[in-house]
Design a protein around this nucleic acid. Structure first.
Lengths: 250, 250
DNA sequence: CCACCTCTGTGCGCTACCGCACATATGCAT
DNA sequence: ATGCATATGTGCGGTAGCGCACAGAGGTGG
């Protein structure tokens, strides 16, 4: 079943009715190389991105250079909500965390459609609430949970947004996302490997036992997952459904 | 200049045009006693609240009982955004952190007005972006900053939402908000008192040197303040303006 | 095959914060 | 005034994570 890229691989786009999609014609497929910065803190946003098989992290970088991931966005969401909100910019950076593709749309086009106050508005509002939940939970998690727990959460969040059970990610980068030392991640990942839950080598991580990850993760993963499913139910029924396809259990 | 409560004391309400306000007639003034829970995690929201001289904290309480403040809302904002988003509930608790008053509106009424897609929609969207910024910054702050710094940030956030330079708040409650030990707050507050920056006794804190607080605070306070001012500029020109009054420098 | 760069492993002293136990102080009610 | 509940101060051992330094290990390109 060879599959070319299609807008329907992004769950938000998949939900939009045909007439809306027709007005979003300027949709443009772009490649998302690892590490690419979609926008920098304070930049005026020019596009919104709907990831298909890529993952983007919203990262806050402090004056000191230390950083922390605020949110992670894959094919369930979009990057650039500030465009709708009237702000046009945010104090965070959007950076590609897992290479792949996304559909891109000029800010002007999506704003016009948004201002029709139709299906897109409703969908975006729900998505924003899911985003609020994710950010809130990140704050809680940063306060109370160990690196071990957070690594599990982070792996699960990434896994949910990728087709297979592999991710390409060095411990250094994970440390950046979690806002901790690289050595801390080495420790935590080492434990998981000894337990046979993951396997990794030089930036390639394979998850062998997803259930165990969920066991070891803090409650934060489940809370965010549950709330996202509640807010955007149809969007998560199938991990990689196509517009034209019948939904199937994965 | 004796001042009774007026909807205009809430900055969001103050910004709404007269015709919108006319449709929000069911506005009801309610007292907000310290510790009152406006809604519990998962509750279906029945009202939205526009604080005038009260402060409400959005608190996440974990399975273990540990907690963390997600956001703080005073007369610059409103409580209950989930009503607009299509979610109807959130996984957090809203609790009155500083006693006072608020204007309350049945969810149905505000939703109807929201769905007219007029001035209220625009205002709420901007407010939500400010909220997103505050949550994101909370996450970062929890990750990287010391209790000392966070206490300063927290005091400033509260101060901005109150008329005077006093707040009624035990160290125990502050510890709950920050998600740290009470003793940690005692330590930090003790230092500030020794420096002559604050003065406190049994739940009453007086800020003597606001500038010093800003110096000792982490950058998080300034980032949130700046972004809020940018997104909702007119709202912050005067701390306690009335609808009918000309704006004056406080 | 070798050199090199990147990624991962490990050790060590240090600090912030935790959990607990208990001492002291302060306002309020009678 | 006197008691009492609540708020605050302090000390102590334990731990998670930090910053740093450096040692292997594994790809990649010449």
């Amino acid at each position: 079943m060879p599959e070319g890229p299609s807008p329907g691989q992004n769950h938000l786009l998949a939900e939009l009715p045909a007439d809306v999609m027709a007005r979003l014609m300027p949709l443009e497929l772009v490649t998302m190389p690892l590490g690419k910065v979609l926008y920098e803190s304070g930049d005026t946003l020019r596009h919104v991105y709907f990831p298909t098989d890529s993952i983007v992290s919203l990262l806050y970088v402090m004056e000191s250079g230390a950083s922390a991931e605020i949110s992670v966005v894959g094919n369930e969401g979009l990057i650039g909500v500030a465009l709708f909100m009237g702000g046009e910019s945010t104090p965070s950076r959007a950076i590609v965390q897992s290479a792949g593709h996304a559909y891109r749309l000029p800010g002007q086009v999506i704003k016009e459609e948004f201002n029709r106050h139709g299906a897109l508005l409703q969908l975006i509002l729900r998505y924003i609430q899911a985003l609020l939940t994710q950010m809130a939970q990140t704050a809680v998690c940063n306060r109370h949970h160990t690196i071990d727990q957070q690594l599990c959460r982070w792996l699960l969040l990434s896994l949910d947004r990728l087709p297979g059970n592999q991710l390409t990610m060095t411990q250094e980068l994970i440390a950046n996302m979690l806002g901790v030392r690289r050595e801390g991640v080495t420790d935590a990942a080492g434990k998981l490997q000894k337990l046979g839950i993951i396997e990794y080598s030089r930036g390639h991580i394979t998850v062998l036992n997803r259930d165990a990850l969920e066991q070891l993760s803090c409650e934060c993963y489940a809370v965010v997952k549950k709330e996202t499913d509640r807010l955007l139910p149809y969007l998560t029924q199938s991990a990689h459904s196509d517009v034209e396809k019948v939904y199937i259990d994965q």
